[in-house]
Write a protein that binds this DNA or RNA. Structure first.
Ligand SMILES: [Mn+2]
Ligand SMILES: [Mn+2]
Ligand SMILES: [Zn+2]
Ligand SMILES: [Zn+2]
Lengths: 148, 148
DNA sequence: ATTGATAATGATTTTTATTATCATTTAGTA
DNA sequence: TACTAAATGATAATAAAAATCATTATCAAT
């Protein structure tokens, strides 16, 4: 299951690259691989450190650039929390969700609430505003941190 | 009405400064005045340019520092939208609200929805998460931009 | 397989927002 | 008035992300 998804993820990236008339390089393969496997909410620096182990000659700029490219291909999405470094969310096959942000340990808990989503649409409509995307973050203390 | 509010705003600042054992300077008076009058969602640079007209010797760092101080006094609040410079919201006497962010003209439209607020609290509770604050931004196209 | 156009890379510099530093000035008070 | 510590303003430092640029690599056409 994981393998199939990874394959799909990579193929989507390759397809997007081709559509844009760009080139699929060894670096891009390593980066997209590592990004898919690394799990959610990774920073460019973290990804760089992972990729370096597999491809030591890689440059930081290449990782950054390709995270941006993944975003343009709708395979990644930037998450900006406060003053932290930008994190990148893996998007393919993941439905939209919002985050609870623990102010103590930094954890991001993924949540979704259909009612809230619907009310947001309604709120936008009431203001004659055409919504495109939204961001809901609830900051507080997570269950784990409370029990310590 | 405006004048009374301004007085209250300034007095709150002065009180906060005294409580912290800090000093009320000419610069602070000019900054708090200008900040109150400038309206919502101002950047430090914008405020600096306003303050400079009244007090040309002022330094940028002083304006920045005092916006931070206003935040500590709960009279201002940082708003970070995407990659933009931090904006500062005037807080005293303003109830909590969220923003619709126009992707075309950059306008911030202030909104509030009690149902959404309540559902957020519920959502946090369901995750055994203690909410402290939250941020809801809906990005899209505002009424004005659509009618052009 | 070779070539050539051009995209990609990696090292480095630049940019930009914010914070820190520090010599000097100033506020508050004793 | 004089003293002490905070505040200021000029400047430097920091840090994340983007831009630059010489070199390398990809890939389509031959
Ligand atoms: Mn997530
Ligand atoms: Mn506002
Ligand atoms: Zn936590
Ligand atoms: Zn607009």
């Amino acid at each position: 299951m994981d393998k199939i998804n990874k394959k799909e993820f990579k193929n989507t990236f390759i397809k997007c690259i081709e559509e844009k008339g760009l080139r699929y390089t060894k670096q891009r393969e390593v980066i997209v691989d590592a990004f898919f496997s690394a799990g959610r909410h990774i920073t460019s620096e973290e990804l760089f450190n992972i990729v370096k182990r597999i491809y030591p000659e890689i440059g930081y700029a290449t990782v950054q650039r390709n995270l941006n490219l993944l975003c343009k291909c709708s395979l990644a999405e930037e998450i900006k929390i406060g003053k932290q470094k930008t994190r990148y969310e893996q998007k393919y096959g993941n439905t939209h969700h919002d985050h609870l942000v623990c102010l103590q340990c930094g954890r991001l808990i993924e949540v979704n609430d259909d009612k809230i989503e619907k009310l947001q649409a309604k709120l936008a409509k009431k203001n004659n505003f055409t919504p495109i995307k939204h961001k809901l973050e609830i900051y507080g203390i997570c269950a784990d941190c409370k029990s310590k």
